[in-house]
Design a protein around this nucleic acid. Structure first.
Lengths: 174, 174
DNA sequence: TCTAGCATGTAAACAGTTACATGATTGC
DNA sequence: GCAATCATGTAACTGTTTACATGCTAGA
């Protein structure tokens, strides 16, 4: 359901082609709601069929530019307001942690150590992104910054947690 | 792939029936890797077919108790050690945040306010869980505690972030 | 002319959810 | 005897990934 929302959200700001939007999924949306090209084109056709978007222009190479309709905007707004359905959150990291007792303590420590490393690297990457983007006016800039800040805080938390976890294991084994 | 790992992980500790494991998915694993009954029984049959688990005992009402084989344990260990494939992380919360500019500022603030509320409630729930479980010996207790701690830190971070985000919007609108 | 990038699509497989279906057994 | 719970399974549908397929066009 949410890929659909991502498309409506992008088109709310400006009309785009599927190809244009695919580039956004590879950049700004990559850490929010990843999608493949295959899925994207399929969903766009569904939305066009349902009247949530329309082909607003056609260009060379079969390019189709889509625009949001009133129906589509209404659906987007309804979804944005409705936070009643809690999302199920699957985490490979937590699954791995949960069963880490199966490995010997040294290996388990090494796994958690790498988690901390990666989180730190990832945080640096996001910080760099943050400094590179020019956060001038516009709603997407404001809310994009909030989104990116979440990512940074998440990585920082993850790095701290993993270091703490390693320390816990060390104190236990002694 | 990871539901498979969850089953192997549970059976690594002790033999269980599908029904037994389903209860664990509804409790201890609910916040780590949720699964439905339908999926679970299907996967167990696949694992039995592939030789990663065997039916170690049969009980009343068609109960089948499964035990991990050496092959299954090897697969589990390999997966636990291999953290090379980064997980894709889809977040409805971030998707909503990203497009929140579509709503008027008062509504957007309200949405983020509720995020903070929920995260705080959820943190309280996890803290209660933490105090109720008796964390005596055993690997699952040690690593289960690390997992739960992650959940608590995540909720705390989320609540702080959402409050900060509301403050950002307020300072902007003034 | 030829290459890189633009541009859209289909098919098959896997993962996950929801709903339905069936029957056995234990304890009151 | 009856209700609760034990216990496993199937079918249909939705969402996601991977791989394949096709053709156009702008610029060096």
């Amino acid at each position: 359901m949410s890929l659909r929302i991502a498309l409506l959200g992008l088109l709310a700001e400006h009309p785009y082609s599927g190809y244009d939007m695919m580039k956004m999924f590879d950049t700004s949306l990559a850490n929010v709601w990843p999608a493949t090209q295959s899925q994207l084109y399929g969903e766009l056709n569904k939305l066009a069929g349902g009247g949530q978007v329309t082909v607003s222009a056609e260009g060379p190479r079969g390019r189709k530019e889509y625009a949001l309709t009133d129906l589509g905007r209404a659906e987007l707004h309804a979804w944005l307001r409705d936070d009643s359905q809690e999302q199920v959150h699957r985490s490979e990291l937590l699954l791995r942690t949960f069963f880490l007792g199966e490995l010997d303590p040294a290996e388990a420590e090494a796994v958690l150590g790498r988690v901390a490393e990666r989180a730190t690297e990832n945080l640096a990457l996001l910080s760099q992104l943050d400094s590179e983007i020019d956060w001038d006016g516009g709603d997407l800039a404001v809310y994009g910054r909030l989104t990116l800040e979440f990512g940074k805080r998440l990585r920082a938390m993850q790095a701290e947690w993993a270091s703490w976890a390693v320390a816990q294991l060390r104190s236990r084994s002694s």
